[in-house]
Write a protein that binds this DNA or RNA. Structure first.
Lengths: 198, 198
DNA sequence: AAATGTAGTTTCGTTTCGATACTATCCGTG
DNA sequence: CACGGATAGTATCGAAACGAAACTACATTT
């Protein structure tokens, strides 16, 4: 039993413990994960397929979870303009409201109580680990635009080489299905690399 | 959306992604988690209740998952000597064998490919985070004896103030239900604090 | 035009899950 | 010692999650 294995187990334990206690909102763990994803993903990523990939499940299961949120009135369906196969799900006002009671808040608060050094360490190590895992699986990773290799720019705004468009400040913290970890595993403020999306 | 929330989401994402691909062993994610727990927990912690606590579920669900592993011949039931209500489950030889194909290996390998600094950062930050989370919930945390406040001693062996016994070298890396995070959030090589177990 | 691939959905049987109820045992207090 | 309450383990129930498979519709490639 190595120290590495202990880290892996702690990650699994925390991921599981993070579901927390649902205080009244009447959503299951999978439904919370889905609602959170659609609240956090950028425009091109709020699809059933992207969520299935994010949640490491099949599109069938993802579709089922989305349907339940649709029935509760927390998501609204929106057909994509460019590809008529594709759909996009957005949070309704009720969905946004419910997100205030996200049980993940408990974990966030615990993270905030960590020493600044440890917190900053997580901020660096976890995205790098996500990248490593995606590499070994030859799959897409998930991350936020501000951490992405496709992104270039300094302060509040910037350019995404993948979508080939300027990003609004609010987009920098959003999940993107075309996320690519930075080569050097630091937090990414160098020139973007153009790579055709999978 | 703060940086803290991003960290929380990455933890959930990794915990989910860690289940990996089960190559042939025919175990579900919950069954893998259970088998892994019983492979890693020390003598006093290999009970259904301890696993339920570890897996953040009810004893009923835990009992069911254990039953399925029992049916597959990967666990054996063993009545406790001191408390006739309690039972302990041990891995059979077949169970030990199956553990070689643990899909969590993929995450471990990814961790090993991280820079040494990042890996060491995780090694410090994650146990601290587990402790913070346990604090805010007033529940028991989980961790290994070597990181525990009850533990004192230097190199290959040491003393556990909780069980009030010397620990074998192999015990230092095992999960314990009586784990208590160190006060100072460093990796714990100071005097043990005696605290009656819950 | 045909073949292949992708996006989304549905259905099926199995497993997980939380809630609840139940038995057996332990422990503390009177 | 007897009683009550807490704890350990298990079983049962209905709902949800899950993976696999099949299906439709649309896009892309050949």
């Amino acid at each position: 039993m190595t120290s590495t294995d202990e880290i892996a187990e702690l990650l699994v334990y925390l991921g599981r413990a993070a579901r927390g206690v649902d205080t009244g909102s009447n959503l299951t763990a999978a439904q919370w994960t889905a609602l959170r994803f659609f609240a956090r993903a950028n425009d091109i990523s709020r699809t059933p397929s992207a969520f299935a990939s994010f949640h490491a499940t099949t599109r069938g299961t993802a579709s089922q979870t989305i349907k339940s949120l649709l029935a509760k009135g927390y998501l609204s369906r929106c057909e994509a303009a460019d590809d008529r196969r594709s759909v996009r799900y957005d949070l309704t006002d009720a969905g946004t409201q419910v997100m205030c009671g996200d049980p993940l808040r408990e974990l966030s608060d615990a993270i905030d109580r960590l020493d600044a050094g440890l917190k900053s360490a997580l901020r660096q190590a976890l995205p790098a680990l996500v990248g490593q895992l995606a590499d070994s699986r030859n799959t897409v990773a998930f991350g936020t635009c501000g951490d992405c290799r496709h992104f270039s720019g300094g302060g509040a705004t910037g350019y995404c080489a993948c979508v080939a468009a300027e990003l609004a400040p609010t987009d920098l913290g959003r999940l993107c299905i075309n996320f690519a970890a930075s080569e050097d595993r630091t937090l990414a403020l160098h020139g973007a690399v153009t790579r055709k999306t999978a």
